[in-house]
């Protein structure tokens, strides 16, 4: 097969493109991480000196800690609700007996491609007009609508490889609805549910757009706190918080890979 190998020129171009892409994709994250260990007051690159002082600073900062607590609470609630809502939808969409499956799946996945900005603005307006103002629940609802599609996608992905005959067998052998779901259907969905939960947590924890619009008084998430700092005077403490958040995302990416494989993202 050596005769079919790409020519040297193609290999050279491919190598150059790979190096360039890796730089462009990773350097912005790298400079944030590097800046977080800076000794100086200001954000300059390359950073001067090496210290952990900014990590000490954020861990002692009431503003950052309470923002982190808000983000964590919202993300946990959103994750639980997303899995509870998204899994049954994916199960229904996998059933041949569900009418209008193509249209329904388009409808349920549409929040993935529609601008997040619109949900934020719409929720802000709807809550101000009908509910007397935004609250932390507005944030939860807003995140829910962008997270549920991920759970639907990951659970659908594992169900497409599952054996539908198993559920049929349970049914004909007399298992009632509950036993059928607990012993057959849900175990089939397990890895998809886990991957969906990791996605949901990550998206809720990282979102700045919905949080920026549906901002209730006293409710500040970590990304909003970072955004606010960037608008005014960023110092290396923003880099330290960002580095910790990159770490959270990296762990979640690896967990998704463990659950269903990153390959299935394409």
């Amino acid at each position: 097969m050596t005769g079919l190998a790409p020519p040297a020129s193609a290999r050279l171009l491919a190598t150059a493109l790979l190096i360039f892409t890796a730089l462009v994709m990773l350097v912005p994250l790298g400079v944030v991480i590097a800046s977080s260990f800076s000794e100086s007051q200001f954000l300059v690159f390359p950073p001067r000196g090496f210290s952990f002082r900014w990590y000490g600073e954020i861990l002692g900062s009431q503003a950052y800690l309470s923002a982190a607590w808000t983000s964590l609470r919202v993300a946990v609630i959103v994750t639980a609700l997303s899995v509870l809502v998204g899994t049954p939808v994916a199960i229904a969409l996998a059933k041949s007996s569900t009418p209008g499956r193509a249209a329904l799946s388009g409808l349920f996945l549409s929040p993935l491609v529609l601008p997040t900005l619109i949900f934020g603005i719409g929720l802000l307006m709807a809550m101000s007009i009908w509910l007397g103002g935004p609250s932390i629940w507005g944030l939860v609802v807003g995140h829910l609508v962008i997270c549920v599609p991920y759970v639907i996608r990951t659970v659908s992905a594992v169900l497409s490889r599952a054996d539908p005959q198993l559920e049929e067998a349970a049914r004909t052998m007399g298992a009632n609805v509950w036993r059928r779901y607990i012993h057959v259907v849900l175990p089939q969905c397990r890895t998809g549910m886990a991957a969906g939960a990791f996605f949901a947590f990550n998206i809720s924890f990282d979102d700045a757009v919905i949080a920026l619009f549906v901002r209730a008084p006293g409710v500040e998430t970590l990304p909003i706190r970072i955004y606010g700092q960037l608008e005014f005077s960023p110092d290396p403490s923003v880099a330290a918080v960002s580095t910790l958040m990159i770490l959270v995302s990296a762990v979640l990416v690896l967990l998704v890979d463990r659950a269903i494989g990153l390959d299935r993202m394409a």
Partner: peptide, 22 residues
């Protein structure tokens, strides 16, 4: 895949912060 997905999964605020520094 990791190079492409890791930045995708980081908050857009943080990626933009990186570009501000660059």
């Amino acid at each position: 895949l990791l190079t492409v997905i890791l930045p995708l999964m980081t908050s857009v605020v943080i990626r933009t912060f990186g570009w501000l520094v660059v």
